[in-house]
Structure formats: structure tokens, C-alpha cells
Write a protein that binds this DNA or RNA. Structure first.
Lengths: 253, 253
DNA sequence: TCAGAGCGTATCGCTCAACGAAACGCGACG
DNA sequence: CGTCGCGTTTCGTTGAGCGATACGCTCTGA
């Protein structure tokens, strides 16, 4: 009881699972102990049980999140539904632009990417499916901020992390940008989360006109002209919103 | 210690999480009790804690797997890596065929789909990303069976579930099909997992020439000619295998 | 209108699963 | 050879988790 809420078996186990980063393929016991702050014997025992339960698996000299985890994750209701409905639209968008296409949702004070098409060979973009990004330095994040006053206030009142020299880290400038986003319905990001990457995003509105997701197109700053994709992007966002609204009203039965 | 390995907090919690099916958006406490066989009070307490930990969330009148689960799932090492590397290839494949494209791996005695492109509006196919399918009635499954004698023996010695009238449910016939697959390197499925759906699959070989994944193209039987896609599919499988092999040899350092 | 079924939620002593300190065996390093 | 960091095992103590029980609510049908 000395510590944070890590008194129950369950919270400790989840802490262990969450100790894995997005690109860990092999985390040692000792490293897990360091990251979680738990007792060595505890991590050892729990990790063993998690292996038993197929949420972890042993790798060369440590542990990694296993396929069982993947399976469970893909059953998450909101994300899976959104993904399945949106995929055809995203594919069309990709085929028309051949640039990086993102679908993102808001989770707390972050953007979580639900889908990503293209962009694997071209630019190295920092986004990953299932990964988190700050809201203030991504086009998708700005869409959410622009349409949600409460979250916007929270974000603007905390220090804004600087990711690149271009990150808009002053609340005033960001607020001004956001009001433009609110009125135009389009958000831009110009190398604010990663150098060399430019991005444009639009909201996806659900049946209550709330922003339930956002989609974006991104490409290398050198040649990428975001304005060129405004129309397709807008059309895609609107079409997706319509379908989502139709679905959620019909499955009420 | 009586048995059903459900003595620990952790195993019970995972049992609760696994009680959610691929399309549950709202499972009541009572239903969870029924599915898990756990005590009502236990499910209540653990579910509450899982909500606290953001693996579950309350929905209208019950629970659902939450975004936190999705995030964790997408950090699963093998699946995420495979997905990220394979996506560009799958996208190309989709653009060339405009049919349903699948990427699948073997997990125990089942196929688990890691990616799926297209096919959302056209045919209703039973596959879902993160979903399981039996091996004997899917093209991807047959690829694995054909190249893994051990698993093949296990599958062939158990009764083969019949999914449609066309499911090959007799070990002899299946074995004969599989030997063709072994020699040609191409597997077919003709309405064996779902009526109206035809599919063709090829293996993806890793650096040890083991089948680490399989990719397939599927379409409605009415007009879909699997042979038409053999060449592209083969090329894609080979290219993907090469990249995967290159990656896994280079990241050893 | 009332009995009862089914639900989510709360209480409370008992007990055993989980705890962490400690120690062990091992390989790597200097 | 000492020792450092690692994974693993042991063990006595203790409080977290257990489930029987009960409560209040909302249906539904008699």
C-alpha cells in the first residue's frame, strides 16, 4: 500500500503488459522489473502465469506480447467496428492519393491510430497502428481539439511538448490555428510531429455531429501538397460519417 | 486446486476477457457469469477492476473490451511486425486484383487473420482481423497443413468440422488435396468455409524456408477465377518472404 | 396488485493465494 | 578469483480475494 494502485495481482499484471513498448520484441525479466518497479519474484511469477495464459511468450532471452494479446485486442468493440467500416473508404482514399492514409480516434489526451495505409516504404512516419501521439502536433489531433472545447482547454493549459523545431508549442498560436480548423473543418500539420512530414486531416462526424474519428493524408514535405487532397479527403470523411451514423441507428434494435 | 485452472485472479480475469466474442459490443454481467462459470460476485469485482485498468469499459447495459485492449493487442511483437512489413505488399495485391486480400498466421490448430483488405462491401466473408478459422476449410489453413507434417497429422486425426456442404470433411480427400498443395505451392478453397466464396492462397517463407505466414485472394464464386491471380499472388508471397528474411537476419544485432 | 425471477450491487468473516526477503546457481566481466 | 547482474526457487506471513448471503431494483405474468 506504499505505492500507487499496484496492490492487486491484476493491476500488477497489467502493469507488466503495459511495460512493453510498441517495438519491443524481447524484454528481459530484469528490464520488466525496472520498468514496473515491482519485486523481481513477483514479475517472475506473474510473467510465467501470463505466458501460461498466452498473453506473453518467451523470446530468445526474455518476453514479448504474444498472439493471444493480438487476438483479444482486435475484439475491442469500438476500434474493430470502426476499422471494418472504414477500411474500404481508406483503401479508396489510398488508391486515389497513394500517400499515407490514417484513421485515428481520441483516447484521453492522445490520438490513437486505428488504421494506417501506405507510407511504409516512402517516408518514415512516427505513427503506428495502436500507437499514441500527442494531439497538439498532429493533424488528426488538431481536428479533435478544434471540435472539443473541454479537451482543448485541458491541452492548452498544460505545457505543449515540442517534438520538432516546427511544433506549435505556444498555446496562443495553437489556439489561433484551432479556430481556423473549427471554421474550415480541415487541419494541417507541417513537420510538427516529425521532420519531413506534412499532413492534412478532416473529422468524421457521427449521428450526433460529434467527431468520433478523423482521417488524414500525409506525405513528404518536399513534394506533398496537402491542398491537393482536400476534396477527396472531405468527401471520404463525409461518406464514412454517413455510413457510421446509419449503422449505429440501425443496430439499436 | 479442484481444477479448472481458474484458481488465480489472473486466470479468472483473462477468462472474463476471453468471454467476449468478436462481435460483442455489450455483454451483461449475468452473461459473463454464464460464459465463464465464475461466481457472480467475482465477475462483478474483477470486471470493475478491469474497467479501472481500461481493459474493459461499461457500455449501455454491460461491458465491452475497450481501447486499452486494442492498444495492447497492437503491440504484440510478431503480429505487428508482420503486419507493418506486409501491408505495402497486400495493398499492391489489392490494387491489382480488387478482391479480398488476407494475411494469416497459424496459431495452434487455427488460422488467425492478421490483415484483411477489401471485401467489405462485396461478399460477406466470415474472416475478421484477429479472428480464428479452422485450418482444414480455408485456403490459408491448407497452406500451413501442407507444409507442416506434425500439425497435419493432428488435424487429420481429429474429426473435421463441416462448415458448408462443400467442406472437405473426410481425412483421405483432404490429405490428397494437401499433397497437391505441397507440390504446387498453391492452395484452393471452394465454398468450404462459407457459401459463395472461393479462395486461393500461397505460403510466405522465412529465412529457414518454414511457412511463417500465408496470403490469399478471395472472391465470390460466381465470377471469381482463382487461377487468374496465381502469378501475382506467388510473386507477392515470394517478395514478402524475401523482405521478412532480410529483416530478421539484420536485426539480430 | 402482488409474487417471483433476474439483474446489478453491497457486506463480511474465513482462508489460501500471493507476497517479498532471502538465498542459490550461473555466466560474464575485470 | 571476487562480484555483479541475471533467472530461478524456497518459505513463513498476511491481507487480498473468496463466495454465501442479502438487498434493492425492474421487469413480467398471473
Amino acid at each position: 500500500m506504499v505505492d500507487p494502485g499496484l496492490n492487486t495481482v491484476l493491476s500488477k499484471s497489467v502493469a507488466i503488459l503495459r511495460a512493453f513498448n510498441s517495438d519491443d520484441t524481447n524484454v528481459s525479466l530484469a528490464e520488466l522489473v525496472r520498468r514496473t518497479g515491482l519485486h523481481k519474484a513477483t514479475v517472475f511469477r506473474l510473467a510465467a502465469e501470463l505466458v501460461e495464459l498466452r498473453l506473453l511468450e518467451k523470446s530468445e532471452s526474455g518476453y514479448r506480447l504474444s498472439g493471444g494479446m493480438f487476438e483479444l485486442g482486435m475484439r475491442a468493440a469500438v476500434e474493430r467496428t470502426l476499422l471494418e467500416v472504414a477500411m474500404p473508404f481508406l483503401q479508396d482514399l489510398y488508391e486515389r492519393t497513394h500517400e499515407i492514409v490514417h484513421l485515428g480516434i481520441r483516447e484521453g489526451h492522445h490520438v490513437v491510430y486505428v488504421a494506417k495505409l501506405g507510407g511504409h516504404r516512402q517516408v518514415r512516419s512516427p505513427s503506428r497502428v495502436g500507437g499514441r501521439m500527442p494531439m497538439h502536433c498532429t493533424a488528426i489531433g488538431k481536428v479533435f481539439l478544434a471540435h472539443d472545447p473541454i479537451v482543448r482547454r485541458e491541452i492548452l493549459s498544460a505545457p505543449l511538448e515540442r517534438r520538432t523545431p516546427h511544433t506549435v508549442a505556444t498555446p496562443g498560436r495553437l489556439a489561433r490555428q484551432l479556430s481556423t480548423v473549427t471554421s474550415t473543418g480541415v487541419a494541417y500539420e507541417r513537420e510538427e510531429s516529425a521532420l519531413g512530414l506534412t499532413c492534412i486531416a478532416v473529422p468524421v462526424l457521427d449521428e450526433t455531429s460529434a467527431v468520433c474519428a478523423a482521417i488524414s493524408v500525409a506525405g513528404p514535405t518536399t513534394r506533398f501538397r496537402p491542398e491537393a487532397h482536400t476534396a477527396v479527403l472531405r468527401a471520404t470523411g463525409a461518406a464514412l460519417g454517413t455510413i457510421l451514423a446509419r449503422r449505429s441507428s440501425s443496430d439499436g434494435h
